[in-house]
Design a protein around this nucleic acid. Sequence first.
DNA 1: CCACAATAAGCGCTA
DNA 2: CTTATTGTGG
Length: 738
Amino acid sequence: MQPTLFSIESKSPPARPASQISRKALNEAQYEAVTTVNGPVLVIAGAGSGKTRTLVYRLAHLVEQGVPPEQILLLTFTRKASQEMLHRASLLLDDSCRRVMGGTFHATANLLLRRYCRHLGYAANFTILDQSDAEGIVNLLKSSLNLGGENKRFPSKRVVVSILSKSVNKGLGIEQLVETEYGHFHDFADDLQTIARHYQKFKLEHSLMDYDDLLVNWRRILEEFPEIHEELATRFSHIMVDEYQDTNPIQAAIVRLMAARYNNVMVVGDDSQSIYSFRGADFRNIMDFPNLFPETRLIRLEENYRSTQKILDLTNAIIDKAQEKYTKTLFTNITGGEKPVVYGARDEVAQARYVAEKIVALRKAGEPLDEMAVLFRSGFHSYKLELDLSHRQIEFEKRGGLKLNELAHNKDVISYLRVVANPHDHLSWNRLLLQLDKVGPKTAQNILSRVKSADDPLTALKQYPAGKTWAKGLAELLAMLEELRLPGMGVGQMFERIMDYYEPIFERLYHDDYPRRRRDLDELGRVMAGYAELQTFLDDASLDPPQAGAVAEDGGKRLVLSTIHSAKGLEWDTVFIINLAEGRFPSAQAVLPAHREEERRLLYVAATRARKQLYLVYPQEVMSYDSSSAAGGPSPFIQELPHGLTQTSAPRFFAYAGGQEERHSDIPPCSSGSQADLSTQSGAEAAPKIKLGNRVRHPFFGEGVVEKIISPKSVEILFHRHGRKTLHLDYAKLELIS
DNA sequence: CCACAATAAGCGCTA
DNA sequence: CTTATTGTGG
Ligand SMILES: Nc1ncnc2c1ncn2[C@@H]1O[C@H](COP(=O)(O)OP(=O)(O)OP(=O)(O)O)[C@@H](O)[C@H]1O
């Protein structure tokens, strides 16, 4: 096929009509999206309206029309999603669909940059940093630059990294960002600026790229090198982007540049499902698309094919309260089913018991385990339930939460490999040197500063005048690394060799609990054995890290426990949302209106995963980390639901009596229950009491002073430790202190 | 300068 | 449960 065939004629009809299968399986709007193959297309569509299906059919359609699969670029949010789509398209048409270039923005950036990064001064063996690596660099810089030493108020490495990342993603200077969003770090703006400068320099000098660099540098090669831009824009005649509502401005620029030659680009998304702003995503991006591509054809999908009307009534009510949204109210033709159930358990143990018992009952009634899922705000929210399920021997799979590469001992092993792949990676070197007995931060830095300019640091280190106490340790380390470098060394073999060396260090470092940790190392070894290339393993460890504690696939059906973020795009017959409690969901940290809006969208995403039955569960009491204080009760999101959309499963307010029949009833809808009334009142009551200058305590932010009354319901408070926040009195649990 | 222990304060989702 | 800080003894 000649590339000219795919040029800008957006109104030209497809060369052949879409195949018969497509027509029957799609509604009119979907069909239009599938068959509009030329020109820019924006599909805005609500939850369950068939966005994924549309993309799959369009993929198959394009290939069927004769577009070479290699010329199609599919950018998705997770690697799994793109594999799944290519798989489904290949079932519809044939295996050639598997040759489509598909993956996440970051993984695609990685592939391209391995080839082109030399132009930017990077060596092709650069290492991809995850967040904790970035934090490690910040720590090194903090001590080498002597910053924040005596001052306890200096932002933690975690916060520093998020400030640096935000500054890149939003294209704002550190100074400006600190002024607008981190007012309480005003005094440290200069220090942060210094760290930012050194952080960039450190990465370039040691061939390291963080997640943001992958995107920024992809954009840079397109913007700064016209020949490369031309080459790449010509290579892909058709571009498709899924989950566009969770892209950031840098990604938008990449799409614009990549599509510059043919202008054949389709993006799909739902502004109501934007839940990754903490990573720089902005849902307004999707409304901005027509400005990027002036001739954009807008297609809306409004019929939901997933959930019953009773579930949709609830999800529509949730998202109706959003301040800003563009998609219309969804409808469905699926009738019947039950109203969503609201259940208030006494505490987290009772909540776990309720969910587990329900699951057992449903399974008895014939519902397969893998058609049920339990969703929650944060990874740790499922701990109690995991215990209960294990007890009952219900098989489950947890998604989200701890990753295999985040465990300290696995990071150790990965550091050896990183140094082999990229000997200039001082972050990893530092970690390895610190493991040697009698080597601390100072010695490690001294060693590294000596080999900084060496072409081959490994050889240079062999000549280093080592101290008596640790010379032997260093020699052993270097000998081991030399072996790993030998040609023909397989990734699985490398693991074996590392373990020979690492074992005694491992037992010394983690003497308390190394037997337990050894299982994680074994698991890492099994993962590694599946790789032929070291670089590929290292890239995947950062770009698609395996879940920690995952059991090998054995074909048995398993219940899914998942963070809501990891459940995006998926669906189940029955969905439980747990810990929908005050302080947990919405998260106590989400105080800014924009953050609360995102929490609401998060609940919307969770609730729209259900096909037939939805349970909203909360504990009346939740323990804080130190189990000293307790909060809980229904989330404001539950309290503000209109009457009549849910059924309440007893007991809610009454103490748990254990074992009694549950009383289903349509009459007391969730917000008319006595508990709900109490909580709403206490929130409203607090309002008139708060005055300018009052000292208050917030469960999360601690003590502060009321600085401004913005409205009867919202105040601005300067917290001693967290700076200025605007709080909504209906949500914030404020306590007056004298 | 390092190792180890004790103490206090933090704590979200993830490519 | 982790991370940062401080103190002790080698
Ligand atoms: N035209 C259709 N006819 C019948 N079923 C459909 C149709 N379109 C989509 N579906 C079904 O509706 C469900 C949701 O589709 P899909 O996952 O593609 O939606 P989505 O828009 O990607 O959802 P979300 O944004 O919530 O992840 C799927 O089970 C799909 O098979």
